[in-house]
Design a binder for these strands. Structure first.
Length: 550
RNA sequence: CUCCCAGUAGCUCAGCUGGAUAGAGCAACGGACUUCUAAUCCGUAGGUCGCAGGUUCGAAUCCUGCCUGGGAGGCCA
């Protein structure tokens, strides 16, 4: 239809009815109002200025030159300030049904990405503790995003960056050591800003079970590194397990320490120096971030000769591009948003296109229970872990709640609501629609009818408002995927599914599927079965199960 | 002080690359179960889109200023 419009403009120009001009970008969309047709375009209004003519007049010319190529188009109207509204044969969405059945679990896939390599890095929490609510949101968001991009035709890799180096690890080691001493009856103080959580004590207890007092009088560095190595492994295993139970599986677990060990950090620093983006001051090596529009320059190598986290992150991103990713996406918490400009700057400085790096910033999560906000603090160990969350409200509810809001909106997570199995809880609304359909498909006779439906679906039997509204929305899935992928907005899919479920429920309450009318039954069975496929595909993209019974 | 995000119905939020009469869920109120799952549906009510200017055929959407809430501004990560 877009093409038809463009051709109409060209024809109008040829005929001398419009001056020669470039075709502006215009929208072709589904109007909010039903009375405004099935599709509408603002093309005539966009042309008004370059063509120096009234929008409605231009619309007249365009409509005249529009070839009635599509037999589905019943009527074209000019309305309002110059919109061109298209009215289609109301059964047009039904033409998409064979594709839904043929493509089945692949329905909704689009070729937008063209197989480009995309990396989605998310969660990447310090392996010094357990995952909290913020990490959980990142997990749900990142994983859903990756799934959507995969559906949009990208070659997606999910990655977790393990911050197993730097000062915090040192601090972690000191905290472990203090607990180790305490457990074995010696004096020990958790350092300033150290780790006080019970989970740290548990980990050290496990260490003692395995190694006893072997390291009590050992050399300081070997004691600390033994404690750190043991604890990091244990923590990381716990993180992996928790994420797996949350339905998240990574392709790559990437260690920050490995960047230091392999010399990649030094390489990146050297490259920045060679390209002239650094200088020395106060004994430290600085990156000229201000050359890239950033407010302040950034230290790469400290006075003491140790590279900063920023240097490692620069090396990490260089490594991502060296691994051949065409597009790199990071999901970060809002507390890291200040890091974005300098990260893009350093990518630029290293010789890569900063526009191929996107950072999805997600706002923080506030937890509510019994109407009260639950305060969380990682330092004191006062927080709800991912595992506790999954235990309490279940994986499906948790993931849906994290993904139903746009990432840049603060999320109020109501534990009681997520847990409740009532109509207040939006999660079940979608799953219930799926289960309902499965229940219909289990009816005696349904299988036999489905068999016949393979030959002929009798879709022309579908004519009511409820049937057509549902059908209309079902065939939108590919478009929704395209939009969600382009905007990096998984919440679009959550809302879309909610809408489809609503249309299904309305349809269900208005009509019986299996009736005396065999052909009508076949048609309606095809309709609900197509709905089942849409819901299932969408739920899976968001990491939710599509239950057959509830 | 500077920067980022948010401010839309009683509550939680969509809509924001400018489009026609601003939407959904929950809560409230009134209805629908001898039926393929009532975890459902149908209906009613609910709004100065934070405030003030500007840009234009047209602004919740773009620009400027201000107000409120949250976050960031380490040789921490």
């Amino acid at each position: 239809m877009r093409e038809a419009l463009i051709i109409a403009v060209e024809k109008s120009i040829e005929a001398g009815e419009l001056p020669s001009l470039e075709i502006p970008s215009f929208t072709l969309e589904v109007p909010r109002e039903k009375d405004h047709g099935d599709f509408a375009t603002n093309l005539a209004m966009m042309l008004a200025k370059p063509a120096r003519n009234a929008p409605r007049k231009i619309a007249d010319i365009l409509v005249k030159n529009l070839k009635a190529g599509n037999s589905r188009v019943k009527n074209i109207e000019i309305a309002g300030p110059g919109f061109i509204n298209f009215y289609l044969d109301q059964g047009w969405p039904l033409e998409g049904f064979p594709a839904i059945f043929n493509e089945n679990e692949d329905y909704g896939r689009v070729a937008l990405g063209g197989g480009k390599k995309v990396q989605v890095e998310f969660v990447s929490a310090n392996p010094t503790g357990l995952l909290h609510m913020g990490n959980a949101r990142g997990a749900a968001l990142g994983d859903s995003l990756a799934g959507i991009l995969d559906f949009a035709g990208y070659n997606v890799s999910r990655e977790y960056y393990i911050n197993d180096a730097g000062k915090q690890i040192e601090n972690f080691g000191l905290s472990l050591e203090a607990r180790y001493f305490q457990l074995l009856g010696r004096e020990g103080d958790i350092p300033e800003g150290g780790y006080h959580g019970q989970d740290i004590t548990d980990t050290v207890e496990n260490f003692v079970i395995q190694f006893g007092d072997k390291y009590l009088d050992a050399e300081e560095t070997s004691r600390r590194s033994a404690l750190i190595e043991f604890s990091l492994r244990e923590k990381l295993d716990a993180i992996k397990k928790g994420l797996k139970e949350f339905g998240v599986e990574y392709d790559v677990w990437f260690s920050e320490q490995s960047l230091h060990n392999s010399g990649k950090v030094d390489e990146a620093i050297k490259l920045l120096q060679d390209r002239g983006h650094t200088y020395e001051q106060d004994g430290a090596l600085w990156f000229k971030a201000t050359e890239f529009g950033v407010e302040k320059d950034e230290v790469l190598v400290r006075k003491n000769g140790i590279p900063t986290y920023f240097a490692a992150d620069a090396a990490y991103h260089m490594d991502k591009f060296l691994r051949g990713f065409d597009w790199v996406i990071n999901v970060w918490g809002a507390d890291h948003h200040g890091h974005v400009p300098r990260m893009k700057g350093v990518v630029d400085a290293l010789g890569y296109d900063p526009n191929t790096l996107d950072v999805v910033i997600m706002q923080l999560v506030r937890l509510f229970r019994g109407g009260e906000m639950v305060r969380m603090s990682k330092r004191t160990g006062q927080f709800i872990t991912l595992e506790e969350l999954v235990d309490e409200v279940g994986k499906d509810a948790a993931r849906y709640f994290f993904v139903m809001r746009s990432s840049d909106s603060h999320l109020d997570f109501d534990l009681d609501l997520a847990k409740s199995k009532t109509n207040e809880n939006p999660v079940y609304y979608i799953q219930y629609a799926h289960a309902r359909i499965c229940s219909i498909l289990r009816q005696p006779g349904a299988a036999e009818i489905s068999e016949q439906a393979r030959e002929e679906m009798y879709l022309q039997k579908l004519s009511s408002e409820a049937e057509l509204a549902l059908a209309r929305r079902l065939v939108d899935l590919p478009e929704e995927i395209t939009y969600a992928a382009g905007q990096l907005a998984p919440h679009r899919i959550a809302r879309y599914l909610h809408e489809v479920a609503g249309l299904l429920h309305s349809f269900y309450n208005a009509h019986r599927v299996i009736t005396e009318d065999k052909e009508l039954s076949i048609a309606r069975l095809a309709l609900v079965d197509a709905t089942r496929i849409i819901l299932r595909n969408g739920l899976n993209l968001l990491g939710l199960t599509a239950p057959e019974k509830m």
